[in-house]
Design a protein around this nucleic acid. Structure first.
Lengths: 214, 214
DNA sequence: GTCTATACGAAGATAGAC
DNA sequence: GTCTATCTTCGTATAGAC
């Protein structure tokens, strides 16, 4: 397990495993296979511990290498964290079951949120990195999350627009506002749920869906 | 300035300045006056720099004492950060203008959100502390934010219930869900706005208000 | 290319002198 | 009440073994 899509050798890798935007763009010099292996292993650590308390030395220890070795594949701890989150989210997306169409935009987010909170460390890692991206002299997390928010909002916006056109959603509200609201609500509710499980994450998001009904 | 409600001497302090829940409960032994003075000064540093990059040594330097001196008034860096946030939020609440009644719950949050983003460091500090509160072995931030979320949701819930009773809000949705949604949306949108100012924080929250109209 | 060993400076925290 | 000194751990950088 954990190895399904891992490269089997140190070959240049297929296009689907091309270095991510956050990795080392356009460069295979650091060994894609080993990099993936490290991520696969690191993800387990973070799923348990989140982001705090997981130093480079600790992660390295869990993997069985020196902490300096990690910096051979990632420029900094923050870049490693971002790569781990990206990696974990991809895994999650593969796990999420696609509901039969027509599926509302809000339903996509409900499924994703439900999958997220099953791995508390993932939500904590997400929150930590988002906070870091707000820093004045932000590192790689800024670029990543700016792009991620943009992408998720854009995707949601398209779906909502279609729902409006098909009469499945109120037509008297701005879809761009609603898209941003859904993302914000999903993120915020996951946090509130982790701190107080009586918050009813899924039911609250479904209430939002009810507000959007035509 | 910065000193309006500060204690003038090392007297036991009035009830209104009793040590906060996050401070050192029930103990005046550490000098309330000096503590307030430190907070007043520390808040300026955080309003500029947020949370990251602001070490105990840096804050201490800005105040003119050693970092060890700060730990004489606060048990840890995290406790200082929470106290600073609590202090800053109180200041903000005093600044926010109260709209004439009847004011909707969502309007309260819009005003607060607008006041927040004028001090970017405050949003960053908030995000950092919330992320820290999700940690497995969480420090003082866990208790603080659990209570804070509870309090804000509760307050919102009461307002919404009244709005429903007076026919100013849709009656077919659960107010507890909506209260959690508003808090989540406000928190999340502030972050999205900081990363991408085209997000339209206020307009999006007003769109939410539109969804709640009867 | 991959990795270990090691060093450096900064960080949070603690102990004890004044 | 505040300081200096010190401990441990951290991220980062470099040198060099294989």
């Amino acid at each position: 397990m954990w190895c399904d899509d891992r490269m089997t050798a140190k070959e240049p890798a297929m296009p689907s495993d091309a270095p991510s935007a956050i990795g080392r763009p356009g460069s295979y010099s650091k060994g894609v296979a080993r990099r993936q292996e490290i991520l696969d292993r690191a993800i387990e650590v973070f799923q348990e511990r989140g982001a705090d308390g997981t130093s480079l030395r600790r992660i390295a220890g869990a993997i069985g290498v020196s902490h300096a070795a990690l910096l051979h594949y990632f420029d900094s701890r923050e870049q490693l964290l971002v790569a781990v989150y990206e990696h974990a989210e991809k895994r999650r997306d593969e796990t999420v079951v696609d509901l039969p169409e027509p599926e509302r935009g809000i339903d996509i987010m409900i499924e994703a949120a439900n999958a997220n909170i099953e791995v508390p460390g993932l939500v904590q890692l997400y929150s930590t990195l988002v906070a870091a991206s707000l820093e004045a002299d932000a590192g790689p997390s800024r670029e990543y999350f700016t792009a991620r928010f943009e992408r998720v909002r854009e995707d949601l916006e398209q779906r909502l627009r279609r729902e409006q056109a098909e009469g499945r959603m109120r037509a008297d509200v701005d879809v761009r506002h609603v898209a941003a609201l859904i993302v914000a609500a999903s993120d915020g509710l996951q946090i509130q749920w982790l701190l107080e499980p009586s918050v009813e994450l899924q039911a609250s998001l479904e209430t939002f869906g009810k507000l959007l009904a035509p």
